[in-house]
Write a protein that binds this DNA or RNA. Sequence first.
DNA 1: TCAAAAGTGTTTCGGATACACCCATGA
DNA 2: TCATGGGTGTATCCGAAACACTTTTGA
Lengths: 251, 251
Amino acid sequence: MKKIRDFQEFVSKGERLYLRHLSVDCVIFGFHDDSLKVLLLKWKDGGHWCLPGGFVKKNEAVDDSATRILKDRTGLDDIFLQQFHAFGDPFRDRNKELLSIQGKSGKWLMERFITIGYYALVEYSKVSPQPDWLSEECKWVDIHKLPKLIYDHQDIVRKALAELRRSLNDHPIGYNLLPEKFTMPELQRLYETVLDKTLDRRNFQKKMLSLKILERLKERKTGGAHKAPYLYRFDKKKYAKAVKQGLRFGF
Amino acid sequence: MKKIRDFQEFVSKGERLYLRHLSVDCVIFGFHDDSLKVLLLKWKDGGHWCLPGGFVKKNEAVDDSATRILKDRTGLDDIFLQQFHAFGDPFRDRNKELLSIQGKSGKWLMERFITIGYYALVEYSKVSPQPDWLSEECKWVDIHKLPKLIYDHQDIVRKALAELRRSLNDHPIGYNLLPEKFTMPELQRLYETVLDKTLDRRNFQKKMLSLKILERLKERKTGGAHKAPYLYRFDKKKYAKAVKQGLRFGF
DNA sequence: TCAAAAGTGTTTCGGATACACCCATGA
DNA sequence: TCATGGGTGTATCCGAAACACTTTTGA
């Protein structure tokens, strides 16, 4: 994306390029240090925190807008992305903070926006967070330690997490949030983090293995004090088959 | 709603009144004659079938738009209404059929539309289907015998049904789709219809009663040949409590 | 050698399933 | 009186939950 230096230029370009009233916001989940993280942006002006977002081009599928925004912020293609809700209250107050950036300037950007929320599951280590031109910073934040967010972005995160949890019944996670090879304890901690409850080690393993979607590899020593856990990998084919059969994956 | 006689007038009025690019479509479910029905409209011009829909007023919450549309088509207030997906492909071809109505006339209505899908659960007998000014007919259609629908409305119905099924895990149905008093066999047939599979009579009853959300009333003879089944009623309080506790309602 | 983490198995319990008998009613 | 549908109860099974012992490893 070309750099746009001037806010006015951005506004007039946006008016040509994008559908009015419509934006996309992404809740990008990553997993690191045994905690669930969300990718946030910090505005240059005012230091407000917000979700990575963007607009829908006049001839672009909304799903593609979300994919584009993700690519811009994370550098990643081919990401697991799920639309989960449209936020359509008229007084989301998109304006207030934006006005503080550049005075008045009305127009396109100052109007009411309906935003379509997507959540994404990404592999933490593969992401190189990139601020957009309005932001000084793009970084991972622990979902339990979120700063104050603009508009209703707090609600959007909450809803995204709720939907992520709900989706666990139909689709096991880990495939998108963990590196290709991972250990059973790592997978368990991911589940525990997302569900916000502890699980029995042995029952977790039994259940996971019973799903027949994991492939066990060799040992793993790497620094970890104590007994070296096995490495596993998702078996993509079996995974898809299991989801298709509509197994229950709940904990 | 005032009658608008002229299409051109409708277009120019709409342009003043509504957000551009944005519509709302409702999949209104009803249950009758042991089958699941959807409320459809048939256009005066061309006879195409479509979902009840409408637009979002410039200062109106999207949820309120859906509520308004429902009120207009069914006469009902206070309906169970659930947003389930935003459909945002750029070539939903809203235009083609509309153009056939009134020649060219471009403008607002001819542009690309993103539509936000809601599904509603209503009590069949309470609905008096009301066509809008573009339609000659508004009526219930068996979900397994849908006519060809405009645009992607077929997909919207499919997705709505899928989401309704998915929601069964968290929220028992019946409360909105059945009359206040109903029999266990009726409730069971509702479940069987929505899930599209048969259930064991005795196990169904046991499970339903175990949820502690039903209140049993007295007998019922009314015409029904054979033994008179009991009548039940949802206990609103216990229902809310059960949902809050996150019970599993799945079959 | 010891604490901490990881591998593996057994017992137990409850909910889901399968199944059978009796009762009420109108044709 | 009988076919049909409705009310109720019991045996069984399987997956979930509870729980213990052994092994590996670095400090």
